[in-house]
């Protein structure tokens, strides 16, 4: 079996106190239906928990869903925590992120940001290209 034949593994989580998990669940199904393996962590995760999951699950991408206006703090925090753990795994953020905040997140090393109404294609393509696996599952 060649590398590109393997499913992309994605860890999906919500960080901190933010009860909006509908988007995360929708995204989980989109990615599964695109042939990916989704390790679903759900609500109220700590950065330590997410880093441990990414390491143990040998994940290709981390997806964080944020709706509590904490993205400018938490986004960079998770990127930094992964880096400190020696994990070069791209972070994709979805949820409520004002356009004005995009440059700051990009500068902090966030791979991509998607907002409300993101289509299946957008979600799947974004995760695939973050994983460096464009044009495959």
């Amino acid at each position: 079996m060649v590398d590109t034949g393997l499913p992309i593994r994605v860890v999906l989580a919500k960080l901190g106190l933010d009860g909006h998990d509908r988007g995360l669940k929708v995204v989980a199904r989109m990615l599964r239906d695109a042939g990916m393996e989704v390790v679903y962590l759900g609500l109220r995760q700590t950065t330590d928990n997410i880093v441990a999951a990414v390491e143990q699950e040998d994940a290709d991408v981390v997806g964080i869903s944020m709706h509590n206006a904490g993205h400018l703090t938490l986004g960079p925090l998770i990127v930094k925590a992964l880096g400190e753990a020696g994990l070069a795994v791209p972070v994709v953020i979805g949820g409520i992120v004002p356009d004005a905040d995009l440059p700051e997140l990009e500068a902090a090393g966030v791979a991509a940001v998607l907002g409300p109404g993101a289509s299946v294609e957008e979600v799947v393509t974004t995760v695939r290209s973050a994983a460096g696996r464009d044009g495959s599952t």
Binding site: P7, G35, V38, T137
Partner: peptide, 27 residues
């Protein structure tokens, strides 16, 4: 999923405590 080969692995949702206690978990 037999159709797409994808999967939602959701068991870790209930295992935050174990993760914090240092248990190695693989889905």
């Amino acid at each position: 999923s037999p159709l797409t080969g994808g999967a939602i692995l959701g068991d870790r949702v209930r295992m935050s405590g174990a993760s914090e206690a240092g248990v190695f978990i693989r889905s």
